[in-house]
């Protein structure tokens, strides 16, 4: 795979499947969406066809504000996998979205040592292939 700028992208690319296509298509438009069950109202992340709370298939997408706070994080100093080893150190984080779900991400655009739990962050979109944009976060 090559990035839009033609360089090779070595990190893991997500598999876009029938359960998650809407999520990835929204990200490619630089929008972050979560799912909400139209029967029981539960929001869920990651996206899947049936609501795990009530098993309803009636689902709607809700566009997230992109604002959140850091729930937890780790500064990664060692990862031998291609792509990641060239990006060390990087911040792996779990972010609480304002919409009430948690997702794994990276906190970027700041010194890794500056990241704190509870820090307000906002989404940005990293275009890694023509089909895949990843939701990452920076200090808000």
């Amino acid at each position: 795979m090559s990035k839009p700028d033609g360089t090779s992208y070595q990190k893991y690319l997500p598999r876009i499947d029938e359960e998650s296509r809407g999520y990835w298509e929204a990200l490619a438009r630089h929008e972050l969406h979560v799912q909400r069950c139209r029967d029981c109202g539960a929001k869920r992340f990651y996206p899947r066809a049936l609501c795990p709370v009530c098993l309803s298939a009636a689902t709607e997408w809700v566009r997230a504000s992109g604002r959140g706070t850091v729930y937890t994080f780790t500064v990664t100093y060692q990862n031998q996998a291609p792509g990641y080893r060239d990006a060390l150190p990087y911040v792996l984080a779990v972010v609480d979205l304002a919409e009430g779900v948690r997702l794994m991400t990276n906190v970027v655009d700041c010194a890794p040592e500056a990241v704190r739990i509870g820090m307000p962050v906002e989404v940005l979109f990293e275009d890694v292939t023509p089909e895949v944009s990843l939701p990452k976060f920076r200090p808000a």
Partner: peptide, 18 residues
């Protein structure tokens, strides 16, 4: 520290971030 693997649905929302 060998990285992660991406084979099942939840992996695709985690593994890209390392």
């Amino acid at each position: 520290t060998g990285g992660s693997f991406a084979t099942e649905p939840p992996d695709h929302f985690e593994a890209p971030f390392g």
